Amino acid sequence: MQRRHALIVCLLVLVTTPVPSRCGAAETPLRDQIVGTWIYVSSTGKREDGSNVPRPNLRGAVTYTADGHFHFITTPIDVPNFASGDPARPSPDEAMAIASRSIAYTGTYTVDESTRTIIPTVEASTFPNLVGAPNQRRVVTSIGADEMRFTNPRNPAGVTLEFVWKRAR
């Protein structure tokens, strides 16, 4: 009888003891989660009126280093090789096909953990207007071991971009 009573008490303790939840557990800081190289999967764009903005077929990557540096690049995948075979001598049309749909920039970043925001400071870019531009933000909407999504809520065209990335392996 005492054994049964002890077993019941033990079961009641197990059932009524709260299990640590994600809310109460220490979560890995966003800054630590983003470190590494992420490969471009897709992006979507929306204007302020809610209409969609067509996005080019791209490939690219973003890298965040533990010491606070980053590199970002996307380029179109559907452009032909340069007829000249010389990267310094594209035709005007070839140059425009690449330049108008590619972007690369690099610099340093900080993370605001409370708003889940990456704040880049662009130091060099193929789009010079980004260099030193204030209010750059990348709001991380979700992140896991293998996928990250963030929005760029302010860009020169007045379009909010959402990017999907997969962790490089």
Rank of each mutant, 00 (worst) to 15 (best):
H69V: 11
H69G: 09
F70G: 04
H71P: 08
F72G: 06
F72R: 01
F72W: 09
I73T: 06
T74V: 13
P76T: 09
P76W: 00
P76S: 07
D78E: 10
V79G: 12
V79D: 07
N81I: 10
F82N: 06
F82E: 10
A83L: 12
S84K: 12
S84M: 13
G85I: 14
D86H: 00
D86S: 08
P87W: 14
P87G: 15
A88W: 12
A88G: 09
R89G: 10
P90A: 13
P90I: 00
S91M: 03
P92I: 02
P92N: 05
D93W: 09
E94A: 07
A95Q: 05
A95Y: 08
A95K: 07
M96Y: 11
A97E: 04
I98S: 08
I98E: 04
A99H: 00
A99Q: 06
S100N: 07
R101M: 09
S102G: 03
S102Q: 06
I103K: 02
I103N: 02
I103T: 06
A104I: 02
A104R: 00
T106V: 14
T106N: 13
G107M: 04
T108C: 11
Y109P: 07
Y109G: 08
T110L: 08
V111Q: 10
V111E: 07
D112E: 13
S114C: 01
S114R: 10
S114L: 12
T115H: 02
T115L: 00
T115M: 01
R116L: 15
R116S: 15
R116E: 15
R116H: 15
T117S: 10
I118V: 14
I118G: 00
I118N: 02
I119Y: 02
P120V: 04
P120C: 05
T121L: 13
T121N: 14
T121D: 11
V122C: 02
V122M: 04
V122A: 04
V122S: 02
E123C: 06
S125K: 02
F127L: 05
F127S: 05
N129H: 14
G132R: 00
G132S: 08
G132K: 00
P134W: 03
P134A: 06
N135K: 06
N135G: 01
Q136A: 13
R137N: 12
R137C: 02
R138Y: 11
V140A: 00
V140Q: 03
T141M: 09
S142G: 12
S142W: 00
S142R: 09
G144R: 02
A145K: 13
